[in-house]
Design a protein around this nucleic acid. Structure first.
Lengths: 151, 151
DNA sequence: AATTAAATGTTATATTATAACATAATTAAT
DNA sequence: ATTAATTATGTTATAATATAACATTTAATT
């Protein structure tokens, strides 16, 4: 079941992706757009091979590289995230500073909440500076129980 | 090449693991201990199937579940970490609060620096509290360039 | 000693991801 | 406009990562 809110967020994210690609002269091809739509079709995260099954209904000749290449593109340009601890993918609703993004992953209901915190990023930056480490990407995934699953 | 320092840390970690298991009445079986030693044998991270190859030299009948079960045990009790963004494993040198652990992963030389920061944990806790999320595990992996690889 | 539980052995297979090369479409250079 | 170069996609095959399911052995409990 997909909430009304999710549909709105998805629709906005898709438009944003189109606009950003136009602006930056990045090619959001038909295929990539389709994959992005399929990612957003689900309320939560999606697995690559589930996406492949869905894509096959549109184009039966789709194969793993078809999906993985599109996913790579979408990640590279910040339209989706990969959840490393789940080997799964999820749409990103705000093409902002991705180093600030982190995920609350509920072990119970599998819902993902994407959050942004400059405070965390600052803490991460300041501690990695101490190691003289030039930070590129930040992967922060927090598992536990969401507020609906606490009892 | 394994540094003298790494050998010392490894040796200490292995002793600590033994002691902790005795204390807590957890069974660090011969196999699990062997796998832990193999993890520490390398200066950086190890992949499961590389471990399997090494284990096979000791016990040719070893198979994937042999390794994965031991790895699961070692992770569960905090003796090693799984690096989710690399599908790899690395020994943990301080059986402390694992929520504080994070990793600096150099894209260039593949070296991993394990760090602990209560400051980051506090920031993570405070922001996840805002979502009323009961935090269980924290996965924080930072990729970039280490100080030796900056130019 | 008998029973139960935990660990390991073993076979098979599921899941995730990429290499390598062929073709098509787009863009840039002449 | 034609050729060349680049980028994207198609296709086959396989690599890499991980687990399910059931059998056997070992250890702990009664």
């Amino acid at each position: 079941m997909v909430s009304k809110k999710h549909k709105q967020v998805a629709s906005q994210a898709l438009h944003q992706a189109e606009n950003i690609c136009k602006q930056k002269d990045i090619k959001l091809t038909k295929l990539r757009q389709t994959v992005l739509k399929l990612v957003w079709k689900e309320p939560g995260y999606v697995k690559a091979y589930d996406l492949l099954e869905k894509l096959k209904k549109i184009d039966p000749s789709a194969k793993p590289p078809t999906i993985y290449r599109s996913l790579d593109f979408l990640i590279e340009h910040g339209f989706i995230h990969k959840l490393q601890s789940l080997n799964a993918f999820i749409g990103c609703s705000h093409p902002q500073e991705h180093k600030e993004c982190y995920f609350l992953i509920c072990d119970n209901c599998q819902k993902i909440e994407e959050c942004c915190s400059n405070k965390i990023l600052k803490a991460v930056e300041s501690t990695s500076n101490q190691s003289k480490f030039a930070l590129d990407q930040v992967t922060l995934e927090i598992s536990g129980r969401c507020k609906n699953c606490l009892h």
